[in-house]
């Protein structure tokens, strides 16, 4: 009797809590619970992804071994089970072993990492140059060869941020003017900033790079597939740091040509 009443109460609590969660989370429909890096669409991002997975597997195995030994000891060598303490306090063999083996693992990790780095830093033979300038709070893009230049700022309305309006699908990841680049072309980015340090980062296109006032940094991307990719500023740059997204449209070359012509005529 009491038990069944308790059960009823419990299911009622679960139901209300569940409903409450639904209400709070406008996003349940698109709940992602994403666990890993975003799907890479450039060579660099793919190399980073593979390296990340490799290191993560190695690290997981090391973790399992350490935790395994620890939990085994906890289970086995407890006084309550009558374990007698041994007296040993060192073992040269063991100590050499657990210095040498990690060293070998580290060397094994360093090789692919070095290769990946060499690839990322190779900005030669690019097909086009794009200058990216960070400012508080948005980005300016210059297509150097084409004399096309425009600003790109957050397009999410304030009412969505303050909660007076339902948040859209790409809340905080939408801008007024998208950056457009052709697929399959090596694009060299020159990064700089007007006021404070920013960092340009679109996870699917590869790593981030700082945009520093007074200096020019470079990175390159070559997107394999068309699509729209979103990212954010990744270096604290003041009040609206959380509100300076990046949206890149990767399009077929012909489409890109048409777009750039249209932009030229605009200005």
């Amino acid at each position: 009797m009491i038990v069944s009443r308790f059960k009823k109460l419990r299911s009622a609590i679960v139901a209300t809590a569940g409903a409450g969660m639904m209400g709070i989370l406008p996003t349940v429909a698109q709940a992602e619970w994403a666990l890993n890096l975003q799907r890479p669409v450039t060579e660099i991002a793919r190399v980073q992804y593979d390296l990340h997975m490799l290191i993560m597997y190695i690290v997981t195995v090391i973790g399992i071994i350490v935790f395994g030994v620890m939990f085994y000891s906890i289970a086995k060598f407890r006084k309550s089970k009558g374990a007698e303490a041994a007296k040993f306090s060192h073992s040269t063999k063991a100590e050499v072993l657990w210095t040498v083996i990690p060293t070998l693992i580290l060397i094994a990790m360093a090789v692919p990492s070095t290769k990946a780095l060499l690839l990322m830093e190779d900005t030669t033979e690019s097909d086009m140059v794009l200058k990216v300038t960070g400012y508080q709070w948005g980005w300016q893009y210059d297509y150097l060869e084409e004399d096309v230049s425009f600003f790109s700022k957050l397009a999410t309305p304030q009412s969505q941020i303050t909660g007076n309006e339902t948040k859209g699908e790409n809340y905080l990841l939408e801008v007024d003017n998208h950056l457009v680049i052709p697929a399959g072309k090596k694009v060299r980015l020159l990064l700089t900033a007007k006021d404070v340090i920013h960092a340009w980062w679109v996870p699917q296109l590869g790593g981030k790079k700082d945009a520093i006032p007074g200096y020019i940094n470079e990175m390159w991307i070559r997107a394999d597939e068309t699509g729209t990719y979103r990212g954010q500023c990744a270096e604290l740059c003041g009040k609206d740091h959380g509100y300076m997204p990046i949206v890149v449209d990767v399009v077929e070359e012909a489409e890109y040509m048409a777009w750039i012509e249209a932009q030229k005529n605009k200005s």
Binding site: T27, A31, E32, W33, A34, L35, I161, N170, P203
Partner: peptide, 24 residues
């Protein structure tokens, strides 16, 4: 850890919807 992998920058007061669940 997962939020970082999925691409959430640190030091932001507000985030896009894909990060909502883990943040809660």
């Amino acid at each position: 850890h997962f939020l970082g992998f999925a691409g959430m920058p640190r030091r932001i007061p507000d985030y896009s919807l894909q990060f909502a669940e883990f943040n809660m």
